[in-house]
Nucleic acid binder design. Structure first.
Lengths: 172, 172
DNA sequence: CCAAATTGTTTTAAGCATAAAATGTTTTTG
DNA sequence: CAAAAACATTTTATGCTTAAAACAATTTGG
């Protein structure tokens, strides 16, 4: 809500057309806090994955996507799910195939498409990592009550929807 | 709260010593949602900064830190504030000095220390970008009510504290 | 005072990430 | 059916990011 002094100029013509220098400091602070939380947790998880399993976070994330898709995924599926660029996935997959964690083959029905899956090795290693990973996350959020968790879920869902709408408005 | 069937084995010896396979799926889902929100907004901001001002997000973030510190900051201050590695800052600063946005000098009192400041050019450009940036953020969060914003701020503060505590526990 | 620890920064090596252009494939459409 | 559009992926160029080691300067404790 703008202070009265900021609204004086709203009075001189049609209200809707007049620009008011609005104060969005609260939203900005919210965004910075959101970013801080994510960076903090992400850094912690990254470090633990490296120390404990000598694996990078992007590799873990990619394997997590594939673990949920026993029949495999195409590179663009992965790219959309992980919200990263196509070229990024190409390189990530390359390294994971190289290390024997992923299997990659060209689709029979569409020769543009590459389908990737976890190998037995990849799935085994991922499951071990995922089990520990889950306890790290639980520990990082340990001070939140179940009610806090529910409330955060709700508000973040609303945030996501709002951001998607805004992003969509821009592209249109 | 574990289901009854998961708790059977808690009965056979001292309760506290027995491992129960606890379910932390809710926290995991919360973490993924948090990450999704951040990635979404970050990507949007990154794209707008590039299109509108041909500047990268890290450069913008660094300038934002310096704008709040008229007397300059040391590289490790910046590194801590931005929660990135030292080496990262070195390179980032190098490029911004090169482009004339930053001024860098060795401290008079401690020759290990590099103090960096925004140049006049850097400050001017940053202020322009920051003004627009703030409207983008406001738009991205537009569907949240003031109450939502307050509540998210509170819950994220609690989350940050929880994560910091957990991270600290590990290092100890 | 001086060796040892600490602090601040840079370097190194590897990997991650993006945007944009290029390549090859399939689908659409005039 | 052929040209054009759309699609999936890769390549290219550039920049970001990290962890760890190296380097340099200062502080500390014996």
């Amino acid at each position: 809500m703008p202070a009265v002094s900021d609204c004086i100029n709203m009075l001189d013509s049609e209200t809707k057309a007049v620009e008011t220098p609005e104060d969005h400091a609260e939203e900005l602070r919210l965004w910075l806090r959101l970013l801080t939380c994510t960076t903090l947790i992400e850094g912690e998880v990254r470090g633990r994955l490296r120390q404990r399993f000598d694996v990078t976070l992007p590799r873990f994330d990619l394997m997590a996507q594939l673990d949920k898709a026993p029949d495999g995924m195409t590179l663009s599926d992965v790219s959309k799910r992980m919200m990263v660029s196509n070229g990024n996935v190409t390189g990530l997959v390359e390294r994971l195939v190289e290390s024997g964690h992923l299997d990659r083959r060209t689709s029979e029905t569409d020769r543009r498409v590459q389908v990737i899956r976890l190998t037995k090795l990849g799935r085994g290693e991922f499951r071990k990592m995922a089990a520990e990973h889950e306890t790290w996350i639980a520990d990082l959020f340990a001070d939140l009550t179940p009610k806090d968790v529910r409330e955060l879920m709700r508000l973040l869902a609303k945030t996501k929807a709002s951001a998607q709408k805004s992003a969509g408005r821009r592209r249109t």
